[in-house]
Design a protein around this nucleic acid. Sequence first.
RNA 1: GGACCUGUGGUGCAGCUUGGAGUGCACGUCGGCCUGUCAAGCCGAAGGUCGCGGGUUCAAAUCCCGUCAGGUCCGCCA
Length: 589
Amino acid sequence: MESTSLVDAKGLRDRYVGSLRSDDVGKRVTVCGWVARVREHGEHLVFVDVRDYSGIVQVVAHSSVELRSEFVVRVAGTVAKRPEGTDNSSLATGEIELTDTAIEVLSEAEPSPFSLQDRAEIDEATRLRFRFLDLRRERMQQNIRVRAKINSAIRASMERQGFTEIETPLLWTPTPEGAREFVVPSRLHLGSSYVLPQSPQLAKQLLMVAGFDRYYQIARCLRDEDLRADRQFEFTQLDLEASFVTQRDVMSFISDAVTAASQAAGIPLEGEIGAITWKDAMDRFGVDKPDMRYGNELIDVTSVFAGTSIRALSAPCLKALVAPNPSSLTRSRLDNLVDRAKSLGAKGLLWLRVIPGSDGLQLESPVSKFLTEDESKNLVAATNVSDGDVILIVGDEWQKACEVLGQLRIDLGRNQANPGEFRYVWVIDFPLFEGIDEEGRLVSTHHPFTMPNQEDFDKLASDPLSVRSQSYDLVLNGWELGSGSIRIHRGDIQSRIFSLLGVTEEEASNRFGFLLEAFKYGAPPHGGFAFGIDRLTALLVGEENIREVIAFPKTQSGSDLMTGAPKQIEAKVWDLLGLSVKPQKKDLS
RNA sequence: GGACCUGUGGUGCAGCUUGGAGUGCACGUCGGCCUGUCAAGCCGAAGGUCGCGGGUUCAAAUCCCGUCAGGUCCGCCA
């Protein structure tokens, strides 16, 4: 276990076990902790490993002691050098042990439902049910402590850059747009509700109007959306906002914070964080959050098949990916890839395997007999493949083709990435609108308060989908850490955006009236950012799931297996809120 | 809302294709032996609703259907 800089032990003990060293030989000390392991050699010699917050020490006992793993003990003993040849180099305290010991059992423990040694992967449900034991394991102790260090480093970075920490309400007002909100019915206003904030977005903009200049908060955000490996109902963000700043400034604030956070986790960051435009990211990697640790970029082969008779290749855009591990792609795995592509929304996926032919390379594929010689030759040239390679092609609208193949690139390429490498990248120049909904209204990519790019202002009316915004995402190893933007601070621009989004003045004033009103009284130009600390921590400690860096997470179905939440509540509680619960479908049958 | 994977003594696994007595391995637990181990060792024992319900069959951990729980993903996450 990592040796922490320890405060002086107090109370029932005078030392943390992890701080004991050869220098202490001869001292009489008292320590407290849990029994990690007992090795009994008969009643005349018993070794007890005692573990506390700081580490493990070996305690030598000479009389039979009734101990089991996880008993809580207090041990008085003399620090002694271990006999010649019995040092344990894998233990920080491995040169010494406690002898002449008196062991007092402070708390007995039932046998643990699972091993607290890190050797075995324990069933997730069991871990979560006994989370208090799971958290005793070294890996979890490390994760949670690194998280604390990251938080601390982020705070220090923010303070250093002149930001003021301000808390914002958890009981907020509904803003029916974006993520589904957790609803908190009001007892004093029957029929009315607060919601838990999906982020402090509007609050922090009001703080800019209030003149705080630079605000930050390590803020809890809540979204009632389905959970994933990188998504929990509640998550923690570094949230910040600053006045009279440009996009560059905000990016530099955040760069400082994530650099500090990385260093706190023991990962040095070299150089500046690079940037890629959204369009480039989509075109080359097929995602707006590219994993920059490996190449294997998408290749545009639209022109190769410009005159093709193959229907699967008659599409506005053709994107190709050279599979990184072609020999593992058996026929059935290729079939799986086709299914995967379809589940991602593609009409199909075409694969072509490069095989040696009578004169040069040939392509083996379900469509090989329809391929012209020129097409084969040009495809091989465009993709720069050689014998044994497999080419995957998706044809569709540009964005769809990129997205589907981009996901396959991730599926196939994951093990190409070096797990010890950390590649941050900024993604900039997002489109202001991501598309048009069923009712013909434009949909914001980020949120409706995002400032359009100055250069694209005149295209707002003529070609709104081509308008870029002053927004930017931070990506680490293929995970979106967070996003931010320069906000609209002028009523006239905001009105234009609302009208493009199909939000009437009445709706706007219902939902965001307090913000729009505030903007009438002197709003500074401002912008900000927020990034997920759960995700950042998970990446920096090498975990693939944010549950591993959250003390008490929920399962994918939103249950807390330790407390049993969510639970049925008594009818009188609903009554007090003026509510009742409808019978469930399954109760009716 | 949908797809896929998993569910076998307290824990981790094997057994499942090809149905034939709850069969096996490792850890843990309990008892015994053991004076330098550190995943201690050796001997012995206990411990099971094969997630749950139904079906097929002479016979189901194994095949089929449903369901619950956990996980991964799609949708969703401004």
